[in-house]
Design a protein around this nucleic acid. Structure first.
Length: 583
RNA sequence: GCCAGAAUAGCUCAGGGGUAGAGCAGCUCACUCGUAAUGAGCAGGUCAAGGGUUCGAAUCCCUUUUCUGGCUCCA
């Protein structure tokens, strides 16, 4: 069977399992109202309106009933009905009635019956519940979900499940979930002492511990070096600005709910910045600009503050204060296409440097409804340049028609991490709003003042989120160029402490991040600790090493090489760091 | 924000109306050890915060805070 066929079959099974679950829930909760139940990645869910909250014990009971239903080997029978018949059939199911009434005129309405349960459903389904395996699904979690995703509508109870063709695949999936739990950046952040959050000091605000800070500095140093290489300049701007700035930029009109409340000083309102753009524009507007100066590429690791709803905060991935690896490119219309193409190339280079190899681009075009700013011709040119850049890089991409912001089209880049999960990191975005609002100009060849293009871009996105993604991608075992501790020197016993200290200080002198374990633990325990800290190199130091001026190298993989001359080790590790090897 | 669950030592967790528990980490002492945990001892707590019920609350109830899983996948 081809991969596509397999996936199709899985989707049928998952969707059908959702129907079986709905039947089971209706058996256990007569009078339950059912909403929708699609197949999703790795499984399915179904939304219910129930008289009481479901508990994890209920999931067991529901699963038992589901297994009974599957064993009865009932046919899934498709029936096409008229709208009137459908309304009649689902008279006591208000959510279904809403769906039926929402269907376009002339649409074929179909139902699927599996014996004790009939659902409004487009299908298709498996032919018989006997094609489902009672041992290869599992109900995973209960969650609240708004009817039709609309927070003004009732909150339903959603049951998530996973389903596979056979028990082995289910087991593998459950193992995969366990592995993801182990790699959770919140867990590893604690275990490796990288960062913390403090509810008493404010949720969603990140504290970088010394080891986390070392990684951040390694990232930032690399980032700055590459930006200078690629023709960027660094700027620094304030963290707060007066209301005038945010009124001019439009943030107070369009983004106020996303901002921290104002603070009053000398009868003026100041706001913490939710974005860096207006500040960069003030720098631009500081003097009259010539076409000869463009493009301006100004980058800043700019820390911004945004009010995120309390329920959406999540470790480092969604926070209220974060540092964008931001830049604004201000250029002439003639330069625009090259700038976009170059920015996309640079973005891919940066992400590949951290070991990401799979990318997908999303091109978001002009909103079809509602307001948008900027002339149509500018939108067209901008979208074309974005598309051309994606195609030049040979990236797979989807077009999100109408998905752009009101102020301009954009490319979002999603990467896949080592666990196969997608994360949106980079974004390259046109802004037709700010040049207008801040009356940005440059003097062109012909002596006339013209409006420049402003391109907003972040490659890593936010340093906090990027760090979270990196932690999970590497499972905490960072490549040596990023490791907070690159080498741990371990004397086998106290008499060799002095030589161990010498080795450590020589490595430190050479610019490496080194620790030496002089505790009175046994060597085995020291190795175990270093191993748990996922330190890439352990140097074991004893009598032989001291005599030979050598080190014994143990990798965190367990591999070891004894009697390596110190100088050889130093040049080997330096080379790996220099090349940013992703071991 | 909304729905559901959770909060006990620095960490991981047990307990559950009647004197607060373990392992690890920490500290002290002994051991001086060759590739994933040496041993003994000591210390560590307003059981998230506030209120209520009770002779008595960490335990039951209410409120608040924070965290977790969701609220994107469209019959």
């Amino acid at each position: 069977m081809s991969d596509d066929k397999k996936i199709e079959k899985l989707e049928l099974m998952r969707h059908s399992t959702a129907h079986v679950m709905a039947e089971a829930v209706l058996q256990l909760f007569p009078g339950a109202k059912i909403a929708i139940g699609p197949s999703i990645e790795n499984g399915f869910y179904y939304d219910f309106d129930l008289p009481r909250s479901i508990t994890t014990e209920d999931l067991e009971k529901i699963s038992d009933v589901m297994r009974e239903i599957i064993k009865e080997k009932k046919d899934f029978v498709r029936t096409e009905v008229s709208k009137a018949e459908a309304l009649n059939m689902f008279a006591d199911q208000p959510y279904k009635l809403e769906l039926i009434n929402g269907l376009p005129e002339g649409e074929v309405i179909s139902t699927y019956n599996q014996g004790g349960f009939t659902d409004l459903c487009r299908g298709p389904h498996v032919e018989n519940s006997g094609q489902l395996n009672p041992q290869s699904f599992k109900l995973l979690s209960i969650a609240g979900a708004y009817w039709r995703g609309d927070e003004s509508r009732p909150m339903l109870q959603r049951i998530y499940g996973t389903a596979w063709t056979n028990p082995k695949d289910l087991r593998m999936h459950l193992q995969h979930l366990e592995e993801m739990e182990k790699r959770d950046h919140r867990k590893l952040g604690k275990e490796l002492d990288l960062f913390s959050l403090h509810e008493e000091a404010g949720p969603g605000l990140v504290y970088w511990h010394p080891k986390g800070a070392r990684i951040r500095l390694a990232i930032e140093d690399f980032w700055r070096k590459e930006h200078y290489k690629n023709g960027y300049e660094m700027v620094y701007t304030p963290h707060v600005g007066k209301a005038w700035l945010w009124e001019t930029s439009g943030h107070l009109d369009f983004y106020k709910e996303g901002m921290f409340n104002s603070m009053e000083m000398d009868a003026s309102d100041y706001y913490a910045k939710p974005m860096n753009c207006p500040f960069h524009i003030l720098i631009y507007n500081n003097t009259k600009r010539s076409y000869r100066e463009l493009p301006c590429r100004w980058a800043e690791l700019g820390t911004v503050y945004r009010y995120e709803k309390s329920g959406v905060l999540h470790g480092l991935m969604r926070v209220r204060g974060f540092t964008q690896d931001d830049a604004h490119i201000i250029c002439t219309p003639e330069q625009m296409a090259d700038e976009i193409s170059e920015t996309l190339r640079f973005s891919l280079f940066m992400l590949r440097s951290f070991g990401f190899t799979e990318f997908k681009a999303y091109l978001a075009t002009k909103p079809t409804s509602g307001k948008s700013v900027g002339e149509q011709s500018k939108w067209d040119a901008a979208i074309e340049s974005l598309r051309a850049a994606i195609e030049k890089e040979g990236l797979e991409y989807d077009v999100d028609e109408g998905g752009g912001a009101f102020y301009g089209p954009k490319i979002d880049l999603k990467i896949k991490d080592a666990m196969g999960r997608a994360w949106q990191l980079s974004t390259i975005q046109f802004d037709f709003n700010l040049p207008e609002r801040f009356k940005m100009t440059f003097v062109d060849h012909d002596g006339k003042e013209k409006q420049p293009y402003v391109i907003h871009r972040a490659l890593l996105g936010s340093i906090e989120r990027f760090f979270g993604v990196l932690i999970e991608h590497f499972g905490g075992a960072f490549p040596v160029w990023l490791s907070p501790v690159q080498v741990c020197v371990i004397p086998v016993a106290a008499p060799f402490d002095d030589y161990a200290k010498k080795v450590a200080s020589d490595l430190k002198e050479a610019g490496l991040r080194v620790e030496v374990d002089l505790s009175d633990l046994r060597m085995n325990a020291k190795i175990r600790n270093a191993q748990n800290q996922k330190i890439p190199y352990m140097l074991i130091i004893g009598e032989k090493e001291e005599e030979e001026k050598a080190v014994s190298v143990r990798l965190r993989t367990g591999k070891q090489t004894n009697g390596v001359p110190f100088a050889d080790f130093l040049s080997m590790i330096n080379e790996k760091i220099e090349k940013q090897e992703l071991i």
